[in-house]
Write a protein that binds this DNA or RNA. Sequence first.
DNA 1: GGCACTCTAGATAGATCGATCTAGTTAACG
DNA 2: CGTTAACTAGATCGATCTATCTAGAGTGCC
Lengths: 191, 191
Amino acid sequence: MGSDTRARLLEAAAQLFREQGYAATGLKQITAAAEAPWGSLYHFFPRGKEQLGVETVEHSGTRYLRLFDLVYERTESRADESVRDVFRLSAEALEKSNWGDGCPIATVALEAATTSEPLRHACAEVFAGWRAATARRFAAEGIEPADDLAIYVLSAFEGALILSRTAHDTTPLHVTADLVARTIRAHHPTD
Amino acid sequence: MGSDTRARLLEAAAQLFREQGYAATGLKQITAAAEAPWGSLYHFFPRGKEQLGVETVEHSGTRYLRLFDLVYERTESRADESVRDVFRLSAEALEKSNWGDGCPIATVALEAATTSEPLRHACAEVFAGWRAATARRFAAEGIEPADDLAIYVLSAFEGALILSRTAHDTTPLHVTADLVARTIRAHHPTD
DNA sequence: GGCACTCTAGATAGATCGATCTAGTTAACG
DNA sequence: CGTTAACTAGATCGATCTATCTAGAGTGCC
């Protein structure tokens, strides 16, 4: 039973969707990258590309959520420093991947916003999960309004990723991180 | 000479790229939407889809730049209020268009980041132009560092647009607008 | 062994993709 | 008028797309 073909397909799809988007990625390209037989794709994802897309978004989403939580759980640093860490880590990953590894959801989310309701919904759920995790971290430190600040951080993060990736320059991520972190610090309860 | 076929093609391409992205939009679909003959497309854009893409990005970019400038030039309101206006106007447009009219550049920018250097470059130039216009407005009011703050505003704006469009809910735009405007206000010179 | 089930392997269908090509039509200008 | 260029119109090409289909290989269970 220990076949990992399905996992490899998800992994390859995640990488390709992240780099070049959903519409530009062919199923043939995914099976080739996963070194998986064509027949397996429709065995594991009988509803075709859209199902693969939805599951890939969920896969990338929870994987990234764990990354956020990992950073957030280091409570020796304060919340504003955690936020800055997220930006900094993403900037590193972006540059190291030759500007390929941006947000694994954003491209698909924009493509699907009006073209595929299941896909759009999956992306919305992922964003909501990220926001909730960030809000929890803020609330745990008494930073309020936690939910609004989480939305704000996520917005700035996604936007800075776009600008940096498009410009091939991490400056937007670093500049935005500084100003966002300052906002969060200003909302720390006086201690 | 007064043929507007070329303009109609650009307009239709801009709308379709904005709604569903570059890769998902076929040239046939563009000519159909523009009510333009297939032959005209390669007459006006002999280098094909990529050339049309680049010119469409430039077209949408300068059109949006004029919109920014229009808001920014209303100097009776302060810079932080102008920023809020941009967010609010976008939220209205987004909702009224059934979540179709997000950023006309972002989707293409993400798709092209690793797949088409000319297209990516065109998007980067547009973003740079928007940033410069915003920075000029800030500098004119003594808000410094103008360039960093412009990057920050643009990041938050782009990200909030993604979140709102994906969630089919303008809350991210409004929440982010409030917090960003507060940051800008805090950078006003004491007057 | 024999049956059932999972997964692999790839041929193939049918549609659509971007791009090229040739005619035909229209307009500009001498 | 005649000539040239601009533009329209669409057939057509090869490639590629998603999806379906059949056949076979592997595996566990009775």
